[in-house]
């Protein structure tokens, strides 16, 4: 992981200000069915390479962010506010 994360609100900040949650998956619709919910809660692509992950700027602006990064090189490609990502994908 990169030592710093480019928070869209606060700029490049040390990684330890942030808390990682895990894969940035979209929560299924309520009626999606048991299999979809199991997949969402438990299954992971766990890719080698490009990956999108939820990080919380806990000791900063307290916004949830979607960090796009590489799991092999640890390079961060982008960092966007999670609400904006949801708005775009919704």
């Amino acid at each position: 992981m990169a030592s710093r994360i480019p928070c869209p609100h606060c700029g490049l900040r040390p990684k330890e200000e942030f808390t990682v949650k895990g894969a940035a998956l979209q929560r299924p619709e309520a009626e999606a069915g048991a299999q979809a919910w199991h997949d969402y809660v438990y299954l992971r692509d766990n890719p080698r390479g490009a990956y999108e992950e939820y990080w919380h700027h806990t000791s900063g602006c307290r916004r949830w962010l979607v960090v796009a990064r590489n799991t092999v090189t640890h390079e961060v490609a982008s960092c966007r506010d999670a609400a904006e990502v949801k708005a775009v994908t919704a």
Binding site: M1, S3, E16, A23, E53, T71, T73, H74
Partner: peptide, 18 residues
């Protein structure tokens, strides 16, 4: 663990300090 997905077999200095 450092806490993030990785295949790189290397971690962060912050964790070392911790």
């Amino acid at each position: 663990i450092d806490g993030y997905n990785s295949y790189a077999q290397r971690g962060n200095l912050a964790t070392v300090e911790h």
